[in-house]
């Protein structure tokens, strides 16, 4: 077992645990704790990108997600100024029980299926081929502006819609007056 595999294992498990902690109690009960758990996941994903030598993507992951997006989340949570009683108590409802049973059932079946798939999986022949400058500035830039030009431009339209939408929704309070 190589060192890379060990690091990968640690990062991957931590990322999944962090993601679970975002939604599950006890961390998921408190928005700020959930945000911190999300930060853990973001950082671990950035680490995974480093393992793939995708430096640009790793840096962007830290700058944009762990940096800007997290700061925004934290600001909003603090602006909302939720108190403990606003969050409501933890109640076990029939729907939650059904949901937990469904999740466990699907998880068990998926686990069995994945195990079956893994036993048939030959790690030696499943070589991973990644180009030398994979995830670097040049290759990402080339891909964005040649192969993926249309999705790139469509993203700008998506962002425009998001900005206009945020303004429309945020203006609700004054009854549409200008």
């Amino acid at each position: 077992m190589s060192a890379e595999l060990v690091v990968f294992g640690i990062l991957a498990v931590t990322a999944v645990l962090g993601a679970l902690a975002v939604v599950l109690p006890p961390f998921g009960r408190n928005p700020l704790h959930a945000a911190i758990a999300l930060l853990t996941t973001f950082t671990c994903v950035a680490g995974l990108m480093v393992l793939l030598s995708a430096h640009l993507i790793a840096v962007l992951q830290v700058l944009v997600y762990a940096g800007a997006v997290m700061v925004l989340f934290t600001f909003i949570i603090m602006l909302l100024n939720l108190r403990r009683e606003d969050l409501g108590g933890f109640r076990i409802t029939a729907w939650k029980v059904v949901g937990v049973i469904a999740v466990v059932a699907v998880a068990v079946k998926l686990g069995v299926l994945v195990a079956a798939g893994l036993s048939a999986y030959d790690a030696a022949s499943a070589s991973v081929v990644v180009a030398n400058d994979f995830g670097g500035v040049k290759s990402v830039g080339m891909a964005l502006l040649t192969t993926y030009l249309v999705p790139f431009e469509a993203t700008s339209l998506l962002l425009l819609v998001a900005i206009v939408g945020a303004l429309v929704v945020a203006r609700r309070g004054d009854g549409g007056a200008e």
Binding site: A154, L158, V164, V168, G175
Partner: peptide, 25 residues
């Protein structure tokens, strides 16, 4: 292309979410 397809769906839906909520009163 699946990425373009996803972006198209998101552009369509995002605008719809806002239009659905646009009646302030």
């Amino acid at each position: 292309d699946l990425v373009t397809l996803f972006l198209g769906l998101e552009i369509m839906s995002l605008a719809l979410y806002v239009m659905a909520a646009s009646k302030a009163s």
